[in-house]
Design a protein around this nucleic acid. Structure first.
Lengths: 173, 173
DNA sequence: ATGTTTGCAAATGATTTGCATAAAA
DNA sequence: TTTTATGCAAATCATTTGCAAACAT
């Protein structure tokens, strides 16, 4: 923990940025909740518990800074909210996300199976890849057990009866 | 073109929705610009050329409806703007996106190399996949030729000299 | 008659920005 | 004493919603 903070401090310093108390608190919240995919608002509320005098704008600015420096990365799972997570230490290691369309839970998978695909893309399209995002939408294990739909939508209300066939895109489970 | 409109009309009818002039105009814009990844605003402006009396809210409502019915799908390339595109006719066929971090251009790749990966995910995590999104971020062919950075950021302005090493994530090209 | 769809304006929610102040180099 | 960072409030931008009018069945 402390050594990761120290490392981030170095990274900031190398570009003449400071690790202020506000920034440090933000980084700590990110580190302490590495499993989750927090929004700026989520992070702000958690940071506020540590450092009472901090503004939402500062959190946004910090997250933007960290993302620019490639310490964190922004994620977007389709709700129009940006979420933030640490980038893995090893530049080459990526992980992907499983988003449950029913309960909204987001899990990570750490396998990186994309290398051969990246290679094909680079060769075929002469596109120099610097990053990728891979998200699977589906029904998580738990929701499959529950066999219960909690997903809501405007059209759901309208055509309740047909909901299953629409919203689950005709999966059989 | 006309037959695709007709098909969409049927789909809407099957759920008791109507293909109103406004909805039809929206669908036509989508069809006429299938290559692009338009935002609701983009679509609104194009629709407005056809049907002068249409509100932005209607376009949003139409796009939401089409997406709920799985006729279109929403995309998000990291700028906080939802973009819309048709889903391919064959439920199983997916395509992926190449987003140039330099010029912002979005290209599509139609190869679907993800089937074996999906299978592994389903088995390993018992996660029933209904959809996926795969986006590669990188430098497109043209920008590689230009060798010129037009990407802007707040930090770019600040640390101009170090920009290359930060923003391109230490690619060598 | 009844339910659906619309345009408009206002509301919302996430994010950004201006600015005067505070902290650090 | 110059630069960097902050909090706050106001501004912005994408999207949604309430509502009365228009339309379709």
């Amino acid at each position: 923990m402390e050594e990761r903070i120290e490392k981030i401090k170095q990274q900031l310093h190398s570009y003449n940025f400071k690790l202020t108390p506000q920034r440090e608190a933000t980084v700590r919240v990110l580190l302490e909740n590495e499993e989750d995919h927090l929004s700026a608002e989520d992070i702000f509320l958690l940071v506020k518990e540590k450092v009472q005098d901090i503004g939402l704008a500062t959190v946004y600015r910090t997250l933007e800074l960290l993302s620019e420096l490639n310490i964190t990365q922004k994620l977007n799972f389709g709700d129009n909210v940006t979420r933030y997570e640490f980038r893995s230490e090893e530049a080459e290691h990526h992980h992907h996300h499983l988003v449950c369309v029913n309960c909204g839970k987001v899990d990570e998978i750490n396998e990186d199976w994309l290398d051969p695909i990246e290679e094909r893309v680079e060769n075929r399209f002469q596109f120099k890849i610097v990053d990728h995002r891979l998200i699977f939408h589906g029904i998580c294990k738990e929701c499959q057990k529950k066999k219960r739909i909690i997903y809501k939508s405007r059209i759901f209300c309208k055509i309740r009866d047909l909901f299953l066939s629409i919203s689950l895109l005709s999966i059989k489970w």
